[in-house]
Nucleic acid binder design. Structure first.
Length: 419
RNA sequence: GGAGAGAUGGCUGAGCGGUUGAAAGCACCGGUCUUGAAAACCGGCAAAGGGGCAACUCUUUCCUGGGUUCGAAUCCCAGUCUCUCCGCCA
């Protein structure tokens, strides 16, 4: 969420910057609401002062007056609350402003490739898709999932299930051991306010799975990513400078409705309602965001390097970024059957955007309280890493070689094959 | 599910309806002392919002929402959350 005080400095400029994101706002309305709001606050404060003075004076002859003031005050307060709510509603649905490094663009076609890494495998046969491979091996079962649950779910079985688990452990170990992250095993359900904090609500409610809880309790949602719950660890906190940076890693299932992607990636496990993901979250000083984003992205690509998977790094254009992000790198892994790269990680700096929503601050050198910067990134999406390994390491006979670094996590198996 | 207890500043923890934004301790920051550090001592230390070029000033906030009152952290009502004991269960 944006700080109104900052916007106030230059409304036009704010509107212009938002146009990079293809968002058009009624800036005159915002300006008007802000003015009315402040007028009402002033009126309110004057009356409150008057009332306070009367009660301090303990002069009985003024008590009646005080009562009258109370009545006026009720109305003003009411009006002010309404305006404030209107203002908050508008502000909470405006996305973050792109960082100056971010290329201007409309959609994913305007994203810019930054680097490429790894060798794209050459096959002397036609490479199969991961679902062909998985079904042949009898280790991916989509039909079974349809029966028990519905579409966009899958049963992963046997050695592939082990591979999935191995990937999670391998990645977490590395982020703890080499990259300085602290492991967290968090709740997979988040409250409404928590979802608001990272920006999933109120605008993207349709993408979320809401849980039916007890009547009268707060609304609860399955987390669409561990980012939500890890970032909100610092919600409503004032941190000390020496608490920063804070770095958390968690491997969790993620739940997404994928509303609006009907017909997209319907085959296979590229796009599921439920998938595992290892997530990295950093809480840093406001002006260390860019630095941390580079660091985090390197933590993610480090995993792909270890697994010898070919990938490329892309910077998202202004039109393709997520709601809370000011700057995002996508890491895309090579998928042989599609003959192209597919997103396997997305690392974003959210500047102070989420911190304002969460009310997370720290005391800087001058003892002023300042909103922190927050970052999140996948390190990596487990399901898609599984796909990438299956497809890139596939053999002519449909077996899959296990990358060396994973073998210690897999009873030293070298290969996954039918028998 | 049954029975109780509680919710106050970064943390612990006092608080009679009227200089209580709130005692005290810890933590933190500055200073004295010290070769340096520790200890000791002195001082400082809430957030949000409004007004002002600024110095500064005002308002709000003691879980949330109502109510009583000239005046509420303190009284009343409702709700939320937390903890303890018993039962049940992973």
């Amino acid at each position: 969420m944006h700080n109104l005080k900052e916007i106030r400095k230059d409304f036009k400029d704010f509107k212009n910057k938002l146009q990079y994101r293809k968002v058009d706002i009624d800036i005159e309305n915002l300006k008007r609401l802000d003015e009315v709001n402040r007028e009402l606050i002033q009126k309110k404060e004057h009356l409150e002062k008057e009332k306070k003075d009367i009660s301090k004076s303990k002069d009985e002859s003024l008590f009646k007056k005080s009562k009258e003031i109370s009545n006026d005050l009720d109305k003003i307060l009411d009006d002010q609350k309404k305006i404030k709510k209107e203002l908050d509603d508008i502000l909470s649905s405006i996305p973050n402003i792109p960082h100056r490094d971010v290329p201007n663009g409309k959609d994913e076609n305007d994203n810019i490739e930054i680097s490429k890494s790894g060798k794209i495998p050459k096959f002397n046969f036609k490479p199969k898709t991961h679902y062909e491979l998985g079904e042949k091996l009898k280790m991916l079962d989509f039909d079974l999932a349809t029966k028990t649950t519905g579409s966009r779910f899958v049963f992963v079985k046997d050695k592939l299930a082990l591979l999935e688990r191995a990937l999670s452990n391998f990645m977490i170990d590395k982020h703890i051991g080499n990259n300085g992250y602290q492991e967290i095993s968090p709740p997979l359900i988040a409250s409404e306010n928590t979802m608001f904090g990272t920006g999933q609500l109120p605008k993207f409610e349709n993408d979320q799975f809401e849980i039916k809880f007890e009547e009268g309790s707060d609304r609860k949602f399955l987390i669409p990513t561990a980012e939500v719950i890890l970032t909100n660890i610092v919600k409503d906190k004032i941190l000390n400078l020496n608490d920063l940076p804070m770095r958390y890693v968690a491997s969790t299932p993620c739940f997404r409705k994928e509303a609006g992607s009907y017909g997209k990636d319907t085959k296979g496990m590229i796009r599921q309602h439920q998938f595992y993901k290892v997530e990295l979250v950093s809480i840093v000083e406001k002006d260390k965001c860019s630095e941390e984003l580079e660091r985090m992205t390197n933590c993610a690509t480090g995993i792909l390097d270890d697994l010898n998977l070919p990938y490329r790094k892309v910077i998202l254009c202004s039109g393709d970024m997520g709601f809370s992000a000011e700057k995002t790198y996508d890491i895309e892994v090579w998928i042989p059957s599609e003959d192209r790269y597919r997103e396997i990680s997305s690392c974003s700096s959210c500047s102070t955007f989420q911190a304002v929503r969460m009310k997370t601050r720290y005391k800087n050198q001058n003892k002023e309280s300042v909103n922190v910067g927050t970052l999140n990134g996948s390190g990596l999406a487990i399901g898609r890493t599984l796909i990438a390994i299956m497809e890139n390491y596939q053999q002519k006979d449909g077996s899959i070689i296990i990358p060396e670094k994973l073998r210690p996590y897999m009873n030293n198996f070298e290969k996954i094959s039918l028998n």
